[in-house]
Computed example of a mutant assay.
Amino acid sequence: MRLYFTLFTFFTVFYANTSYAKILIGLSSENGESLKYSQQQFIGHLESAYNCVVEGLNGQYSVTTVPQARLIKMLADNEIDIAMPLLLLPERDSFAKRSQTLYKVNYELITHPHKYDLNLDTLRSKVIQQGLVYKRGTGARSLLFRYLELNADSNQFQEHQVNTWRQSVDFVRHNRAAVTALPSVIAKDIPLEYFDGLERIKMPTPELGFYMSRRFSQTTLAESINALANQCAQQT
């Protein structure tokens, strides 16, 4: 009943807000099988909550699919209204407004085994020696720095950026970097042999949702979308 009431409220506000006759949604093209857009539907492991939110737009939206680094820039420049799927990170709060949490996603830290315990001190030492690697345009860097308690402004080690999740695993496999991090749903799409001889460590679970541009977030329509997101998250 609460969801129907929210939808009714949303539609009322939506049609009253003529300045946003068409909402532009930006979708990251680098999600593997976790979230894609096809035939006016989001499909993939994360489709449930995102489809729930978008269905509330009653077709009054368009979707553009771009690389994630480009998506973040478009969001910061107010070129899109909504960007998804995105980790809800403090550094992104400075230029966009986060949604309610739709999912909590599992991330894995990938590294080589160590003859002694793989505690944080050991992992930090490995990073200083070999550096770290992450997929560009994602929240993987922020999660690695937070988990390993590294100084984001440090120049003690080398950072590598790659274009795909699989490339980040390759860097570690071939000892070009000490660690990387990737979502567990993405790891499922990578052949198991890529992880042969590697250690997979479960990291603290970050929150996933979407962001609204600063310009769009100031509208009453944005408030209704966020309320709907809260309802959709409770159903997942």
Score class of each variant (00 low, 15 high):
residue 2 R to P: 10
residue 8 F to Q: 14
residue 10 F to K: 01
residue 14 F to Q: 12
residue 16 A to N: 12
residue 19 S to W: 04
residue 23 I to C: 07
residue 25 I to A: 14
residue 27 L to A: 11
residue 29 S to K: 09
residue 30 E to H: 08
residue 38 S to N: 07
residue 41 Q to S: 12
residue 41 Q to Y: 06
residue 43 I to A: 08
residue 53 V to P: 01
residue 55 E to T: 15
residue 59 G to Q: 06
residue 60 Q to C: 09
residue 60 Q to A: 08
residue 63 V to A: 06
residue 65 T to A: 10
residue 70 R to W: 03
residue 71 L to I: 11
residue 73 K to I: 07
residue 74 M to V: 10
residue 85 P to A: 15
residue 86 L to D: 05
residue 89 L to W: 01
residue 94 S to P: 06
residue 95 F to A: 12
residue 96 A to W: 02
residue 100 Q to P: 02
residue 105 V to R: 12
residue 107 Y to N: 00
residue 108 E to V: 05
residue 110 I to W: 06
residue 113 P to N: 03
residue 118 L to H: 13
residue 118 L to E: 12
residue 120 L to T: 15
residue 125 S to Q: 13
residue 126 K to I: 02
residue 132 L to F: 14
residue 134 Y to D: 10
residue 137 G to Y: 04
residue 141 R to T: 08
residue 146 R to A: 14
residue 152 A to Y: 12
residue 157 F to W: 00
residue 158 Q to E: 11
residue 159 E to C: 05
residue 161 Q to N: 12
residue 165 W to L: 10
residue 167 Q to G: 08
residue 168 S to R: 14
residue 175 N to S: 13
residue 185 V to L: 14
residue 186 I to P: 01
residue 187 A to H: 11
residue 187 A to S: 15
residue 189 D to R: 09
residue 194 Y to D: 07
residue 194 Y to L: 01
residue 200 R to S: 08
residue 201 I to C: 02
residue 208 L to W: 03
residue 211 Y to W: 09
residue 230 N to H: 06
residue 233 A to K: 01
residue 233 A to Y: 03
residue 236 T to M: 11
residue 236 T to G: 05
